[in-house]
Design a protein around this nucleic acid. Structure first.
Length: 781
DNA sequence: CTACTTTGTCATTGG
DNA sequence: GGCCAATGACAAAGT
């Protein structure tokens, strides 16, 4: 059964991938929206943790039996949403990630980054370069040379290097430059901060680039049915390099592959074999230096071009990249030399997406995310972002920020280009970027969602600040939901989905087996006693029915109904809790008979007794006992008959004391069995209901957060407007001699009556304490 | 062989 | 008090 499930699931996944590649993805969407059961079930069923739920709901709907009425639509809604996202990501799976290639662009022959192909160290260096040499045009040519730039060219900002080392901690070769920059305290601090992140719900691997990389590499071969070794070999041979470059395929021409390899080997003398594909990096380097402008603008341009259909996740990454860039700007005010080559198309799943994000951000400022991840919540920073009074001191940074805020939300490039942020913005960006990273991660984000709402707010707010449109915000909400759903699913699903799939995917076989068993039971009775046969038939046709119909509502009718549903034929769940094997046959002899059953029938004709022994093995203990005691009616009748009829039945036959005891035991056990099955089903439904409730609550929470973001944005805009007016008025103010008031000495004060006063700042501060009387200097022009 | 899940059974409780 | 459903707990069987 497990194999069947696995096979089926894999087949579905492959089918889905195929569909995605072909472009049916959109159609899948529409199918899902149209609530077309078959395709949805086929595609999403096996991978859905809620399939079982859907089944139950469907069954409940069909047979009218619902212990815990649930909203099927909600269920479908959540499941389809989340799974559709996964399916969408699947089609990007086919495209390897070119983003890794970026590192080498900045990397020179300097052996600084020991781990070689690992991007994190190189990024650190890149940041250093970006910080110090951003304006020097030599950098790029030097890098293009590949080996010319000395290490001294890249003066590492101490903090950046530290952070970079953090990012690559486990990959970093001690003794190399990157590692040398780390002091013991730095490492300790890093570890502490990391632990904090882990405590927050973000696994260490979240920030561990090498881990993510491993994951990615592990996942790559899977769809291609190739192992790691061959896969890496392919990478080395550049096979994937071309696949990885959907935008510009002939990148390899710039630098011969062998040369690239040599260069790489010279740069990264060790660990190549296990590291990420070197040839790709090299080729991509060539591409990046030649085709892509080494400005962030160019980067983003390519980003958007490479992925015309940026989905939510992609947008998230874009935003994060922007924010990280701005953070970088805030630190250095220089970004441009960071030649982020190409943006990954290869977002595969949540984890990978995170990985991609990090990778992409790496060339820009890979440290940011990690560093930010360790920063405390920005809730305290939040109020500081918008100090109530407009001091002339703070006017310089703010206009930029405001410009960003009012910028076209849909135009990432423009937003991206406006990167003249000063340090004012930095703390918030830093502190919030932690969460910025997390939304892509299902579980860590869920944890954060629970724990640090304010962080979320500031994050989302920042996103809005950076031009997060309403539509994007709603998409963000969806992402949040899907994430939470994922967390719910992925967190607990290993048990429930497997069970559901296991039992469901084999509905046909199980039904056939049940038919087999029941037939066997009936045959056994018929052979054992002619009377028994008569009784069985009588029972099936007679007064037994009413009592049984009650049972049938939730158990027996279901499987047959679902066999008629094509989508459930393949993925149906066999929760035939109350289905009695013998009853299944005696009541529904028309049930489809499996080949096994047919063979059994053949065997019965030839040699009956051995088969009975075999079937006795599979028959329930009570059935065997009943047979051995020569109970003249079926267990199903014993169990399901109403009390009166049951008593009548007992009275009709002259049974021994032991027989009566056995019959009563059989009845008790049978009823209890069904009760247990119902109980379990109910329990399961309860759990699922709770999950749905949690999702709903999360949804509400996300909605409220969104609303709050909207409000904050509005307030911010109003403040900006007010600040603009303030500046306008203040600059036009002249004293008696026609000279402008120095902004650092005077400020405008607003009266409660709407009047505006200009007064010295020293007075203004004192004035705030004693409010009312002021000297009227209303000199409004 | 072990771990985990599923399923059946028993004992108990409450309607 | 008997019947029955529900449920926790345990064990056997299956995966």
């Amino acid at each position: 059964m497990l194999y069947l499930k696995k096979y089926f699931t894999e087949g579905l996944i492959q089918f889905t991938i195929l569909l995605s590649l072909i472009g049916v993805r959109v159609d899948v969407d529409s199918y899902l929206n149209n609530q077309l059961p078959p395709l949805r079930e086929i595609i999403l069923g096996p991978s859905s943790a809620y399939t079982q739920t859907q089944f139950h709901n469907l069954r409940n709907t069909l047979d009218g039996y619902g212990i815990h009425p649930k909203s099927v639509d909600l269920d479908h809604f959540f499941t389809t949403r989340r799974l559709l996202n996964q399916v969408r990501q699947l089609d990007r799976l086919s495209v390897p990630t070119p983003e890794l290639n970026t590192w080498l662009v900045h990397r020179d022959s300097e052996t600084v980054v020991s781990a070689g192909s690992h991007s994190s160290p190189s990024i650190t260096l890149d940041n250093g370069a970006g910080l110090d040499n951003a304006n020097s045009p030599d950098v790029t040519p030097a890098m293009r040379g590949g080996s010319g730039a000395p290490e001294s060219t890249y003066n590492l900002n101490a903090a950046e290097s530290t952070l970079g080392a953090v990012a690559s901690e486990e990959n970093q070769e001690p003794g190399r430059n990157g590692g040398e920059d780390l002091s013991k305290e730095d490492i300790d601090l890093i570890d502490v901060l990391w632990r904090q992140d882990i405590d927050l719900g973000a696994g260490r691997e979240v920030f561990n680039y090498s881990n993510r990389q491993k994951e990615t590499e592990e996942e790559k071969p899977r769809p291609q049915e190739s192992n790691n070794g061959t896969e890496q070999e392919r990478w080395r041979n550049g096979v994937n390099a071309q696949e990885a470059q959907p935008v510009d395929g002939e990148t390899g021409e710039s630098i011969p592959e062998q040369e690239c390899l040599r260069l790489l080997e010279a740069t990264f003398p060790f660990g190549q074999e296990t590291e990420f594909p070197a040839p790709v990096v090299a080729t991509e380097t060539a591409v990046s230096t030649e085709d892509v402008p080494s400005t962030s603008q160019g980067v983003l341009t390519q980003l958007t071009q490479a992925e015309p259909q940026l989905d939510l996740e992609q947008q998230w990454q874009d935003i994060m990249a922007i924010m990280e860039l701005q953070t970088m700007d805030a630190n250095t005010t220089l970004v441009q030399n960071n030649t982020v080559v190409s943006v990954s198309n290869g977002t595969r799943d949540a984890n990978n997406s995170n990985y991609v994000h990090t990778t992409r951000s790496t060339p820009i400022n890979q440290d940011v995310s990690l560093h930010q991840a360790t920063l405390p919540s920005c809730s305290q920073d939040f109020p500081q972002m918008f100090p109530p009074q407009f001091d002339s001191d703070s006017t310089t940074p703010r206009p930029t920020m405001l410009r960003l805020a009012s910028g076209n939300s849909s135009n990432i490039n423009s937003t991206f280009g406006a990167t003249n942020l000063t340090g004012v913005f930095l703390p918030q960006v830093n502190s919030s970027s932690n969460i910025t990273t997390t939304p892509i991660l299902p579980d860590p984000f869920s944890a954060l969602l629970e724990e640090s709402m304010l962080d979320e707010i500031s994050l989302l707010d920042l996103a809005m600040e950076e031009g997060f449109s309403q539509a994007q915000a709603s998409q963000l909400e969806d992402e949040l939901d899907s994430d939470s759903g994922l967390s719910l699913d992925s967190g607990h699903s290993p048990a429930s989905p497997s069970s559901s799939e296991t039992s469901c995917s084999s509905a046909a076989s199980s039904s056939s087996t049940s038919a087999t068993f029941s037939e066997e039971g009936a045959v056994g009775y018929s052979t054992d006693s002619e009377v028994a046969t008569a009784e069985t038939e009588d029972g099936a046709a007679g007064g037994y029915q009413p009592g049984f119909s009650k049972l049938c509502r939730m158990s027996y009718q279901d499987p047959s109904q679902f066999h008629n549903l094509p989508q459930l034929d393949s993925i149906s769940h066999n929760h035939t809790y109350n289905l009695q094997l013998s009853s299944a046959f005696s009541e529904r002899p028309e049930l489809p008979l499996s080949t096994a059953k047919k063979s059994i029938r053949d065997k019965q004709s030839s040699k009956l007794q051995p088969h009975q022994d075999l079937m006795d093995k599979h028959a329930s203990r009570d059935e065997r006992r009943a047979r051995s005691m020569k109970i003249p009616f079926t267990n199903e009748k014993i169990i399901n008959l109403p009390v009166e009829e049951f008593n009548e039945l007992l009275a009709k036959h002259h049974l021994s004391e032991s027989q009566l005891a056995l019959i009563r035991d059989i009845r008790r056990r049978g009823k209890n069995k069904m009760a247990a099955q119902n109980c379990r089903k109910r329990k399961l439904d309860t759990i699922i209901n709770l999950e749905q409730n949690v999702q709903e609550l999360r949804r509400n929470k996300a909605r409220l957060l969104k609303e709050k973001m909207e409000f904050i944005r509005t307030i911010r805009q109003m403040k900006q407007k007010m600040h603009g007016l303030y500046q306008e008025v203040f600059t036009q103010l002249r004293d008696e001699e026609g000279r402008p008031y120095p902004p650092n000495e005077y400020s405008l004060q607003y009266g409660s009556d709407g009047s505006v006063l200009i007064m010295p700042r020293s007075m203004a501060s004192a004035e705030q304490n004693r409010k009312p009387e002021k000297k009227q200097k209303d000199k409004k022009k």
